[in-house]
């Protein structure tokens, strides 16, 4: 009951966020220096043909009209046409790229989440011992390490030296990503490093906090076995804050995607956005940023709801004393 109410409220605020974001993105990109008409027709176009194109595309209309047209299109599922790629519908190029990126993010996710939680918990349980020092140092070292730095070292080791993975993540023409899954490994690992650093450290401190709590002492002095205390009493409480931490770090994950996609020339949404920015492809930038915002917002919403569902203190807030 409460959960549903919270969900509806959060969904509402998510929609508001997206609307505000779409305005911001639109305004920001539209004020970009450079003339769209000139970009389409090239340097040699005559002033008359430029003006004709502007008129035809409605580029001379006031900005709110253009926004309304653009937003209306999006609501109907039309993301517009790419300028750089001469009128190709964005829908036809974007979604395949989004699919690739999601697959990459997912691969990274299933590597770093269990890994960071496991080592974070382990470090917390073994606090101040050698195991903890090693894990903590590793976490500290990777915490703010840019993805491309860990990426080039991985390339150096696995692609240049050992030659077990491809040096770039290119899908041969005519093939799908599913027949080339090995191109995912190095990019996903590059992302894993920085995520591991942050999440494992947070997991460690939340584990230590829980292990020092009165109820863990009470459970131990009830004569419960050590492992049972750790798994039944400590773990769930220590994992709860981590869910929020992971949710908050999805933003870094998306930033990281752009970096590794650029490094590995991986055909995803991030490298598409990079190309769009480099070529000043206005509609494509708008579409990509809006989509990233939407995915990020939804993932935050999901983690928040998950946290609420798993935490009895929030689940039963209504009848608390």
């Amino acid at each position: 009951m409460n959960i549903l109410k919270t969900f509806m409220r959060r969904l509402g605020s998510l929609i508001v966020t997206l609307v505000v974001m779409s305005v911001v993105i639109f305004v920001l990109v539209e004020i970009m220096p450079g003339d769209v008409a000139e970009m389409i027709l090239g340097q040699s176009a005559t002033p008359e043909s430029l003006e004709a194109l502007r008129e035809a595309r409605g580029l001379n209309d006031p900005i709110y009209q253009r926004y309304a047209r653009w937003a209306g299109g999006i609501l109907q599922g039309d993301l517009g046409e790419s300028i750089y790629m001469r009128g190709v519908a964005i829908n036809s190029i974007l979604w395949r790229r989004v699919g690739h990126s999601v697959l990459l993010a997912f691969t990274a996710f299933i590597i770093f989440v269990p890994l960071s939680i496991f080592f974070g918990v382990l470090a917390g349980v073994k606090a101040k011992k050698l195991t903890d020092s090693i894990i903590s140092f590793f976490g500290l070292a990777t915490m703010a390490l840019p993805e491309f730095v860990s990426g080039v070292f991985l390339i150096g080791l696995f692609a240049v030296q050992l030659r077990v993975f491809p040096i770039v993540s290119i899908i041969p023409i005519g093939e799908s990503i599913f027949s080339n899954l090995n191109i995912l490994i190095l990019p996903a690992l590059s992302i894993t490093f920085v995520m591991f650093g942050y999440i494992s450290r947070m997991q460690r401190s939340s584990m230590i906090l829980v292990l020092n709590s009165d109820y863990i002492r009470a459970a131990t002095l009830k004569g419960m076995p050590y492992k049972y205390v750790i798994f039944r009493h400590a773990l769930k409480n220590a994992l709860l804050p981590t869910i929020t931490i992971i949710g908050m770090n999805m933003g870094w994950l998306f930033g990281g995607l752009i970096v590794v996609e650029t490094l590995f020339a991986f055909p995803g949404m991030g490298s598409l956005l990079m190309t769009a920015i480099r070529t000043r492809d206005v509609p494509l930038i708008e579409a990509c940023v809006l989509l990233i915002t939407a995915i990020f917002a939804i993932s935050t919403l999901v983690t928040d709801m998950l946290y609420g569902l798993l935490n009895p203190r929030i689940r039963y807030q209504g009848d608390a004393q």
């Binding site: 709590s213 009165d214 109820y215 002492r217 009470a218 459970a219 131990t220 002095l221 009830k222 004569g223 419960m224 039944r232 009493h233 769930k236 409480n237 709860l240 935490n311 009895p312 203190r313």
Partner: peptide, 21 residues
Amino acid sequence: YRGDRIAMVYQNPYSSLNPSL
């Protein structure tokens, strides 16, 4: 012995009970 032959009750009952069980 703990919890079986010797049992203990603490000052702060709220924090001595596990909030998620």
